[in-house]
């Protein structure tokens, strides 16, 4: 993304989102749901990329922040019932932002005490945080506990997903691609050198966690008003892992790559599902020749990941020389 035209790009994308929403209103519910999921995945993966990729802090608790945002925004919109698209839109925006701020506070609370930890230790603590959120929600009767929470309004549409994905990309890429933002990468590359050069590692790490958590909270709000049903188990460890995989697959710290990976990994399971439903293939006698994919598609997904990691450990979409590894010359 060219930094000079970043704002033009943002406005253009927002307009495109509005148009897409206008025309996309006639889409069947299933493709609409998949496209919205792509938007949510982009918000999650790009915000996680700020923490894991750019700042190099391995967090496994991103689904926890998403859960905070999802439940907070759902409780708010369940409480009110606005009529008319404008008021409903404002209400949804307010609920999303509230969810985002709640998640950001959670990010701050997790961030400050744990940021003296590094690598594996930080990963374990953030993992524990995610589980704590899940268990708390499971035992909170006010939000349905383990039975789950019905979300009355299905506010999420193409526009909201597009807009929030675009804003997330703008904020994360805008932060990183500035002189200020070089600090995130400096902290990832060498914390000791960074602090000796006047860059406060703590401040950058907390900023990354708070901004990352804020957008995860927004994504949670989108998710809540898209599926219209929340269960605490939907925000478990495996959900966090899904987004970590997107970041790693896209290439740590590579925003464009992470967006592509988010699209690909959201489409892949759905694509395999669709392939399984194909009635006939030319030249094949059997009906539904790919039906076996129904049971094996998750195995296939895992195998693909293993294959990709073995062949492109620097990320599927990273074409630069692997940084940090001296080339032989």
């Amino acid at each position: 993304m060219n930094i000079v035209h970043a704002k033009t790009w943002l406005v253009g994308t927002l307009l495109f989102g509005a148009l897409a929403c206008f025309w996309g209103g006639h889409l069947a519910p299933y493709p609409l749901f998949v496209v919205c999921n792509i938007g949510i995945s982009i918000v999650m993966a790009v915000s996680l990329n700020l923490i894991n990729g750019h700042t190099g802090q391995f967090s496994l608790g991103h689904a926890g922040f998403m859960a905070v945002g999802a439940y907070v925004s759902a409780v708010i919109t369940n409480h009110y019932n606005e009529s008319g698209p404008v008021l409903a839109g404002l209400e949804f925006a307010a609920a999303l932002v509230a969810g985002g701020f709640a998640a950001a506070v959670a990010g701050l609370l997790v961030g400050i005490p744990t940021l003296r930890l590094k690598g594996d230790y930080l990963a374990i603590v953030t993992l524990g945080f995610g589980e704590i959120i899940r268990v708390i929600l499971q035992n909170m009767d006010a939000v349905g506990g383990a039975r789950g929470l019905s979300v009355i309004h299905g506010y999420t549409n193409l526009f909201w997903c597009f807009a929030l994905a675009a804003i997330t990309v703008y904020v994360v890429a805008g932060l990183v691609q500035s002189t200020y933002g070089r600090g995130f990468i400096a902290v990832r590359d060498d914390e000791i050198a960074a602090s000796a050069m006047g860059i406060s590692p703590t401040r950058y790490k907390v900023t990354a966690f708070v901004v990352g958590a804020f957008f995860a909270g927004l994504a949670g709000g989108l998710y809540a008003h898209s599926t219209q049903f929340l269960t605490p188990n939907g925000f478990g460890f495996m959900t966090s892992i899904t987004y970590v995989v997107m970041v790693i697959l896209g290439g740590m710290g590579n925003t464009a790559g992470v967006i592509l990976a988010a699209i690909l990994l959201t489409l892949l399971p759905e694509g395999l599902r669709m392939a399984a439903d194909v009635e006939r293939l030319p030249g094949v006698a059997a009906v539904r020749p790919l039906a076996w994919l129904v049971n094996t598609r998750m195995i296939l997904y895992s195998l693909l990941l293993i294959l990709l990691m073995l062949t492109r450990p620097q990320g599927l979409f990273s074409f630069r020389r692997q940084p940090g590894k001296p080339s032989l010359h």
Partner: peptide
């Protein structure tokens, strides 16, 4: 040095 950055960015990072 900040090993994943260019020569230019290594110096730029400090200017904030």
């Amino acid at each position: 040095l900040f090993h994943s950055m260019t020569v230019f960015d290594n110096v730029r990072a400090v200017f904030h």
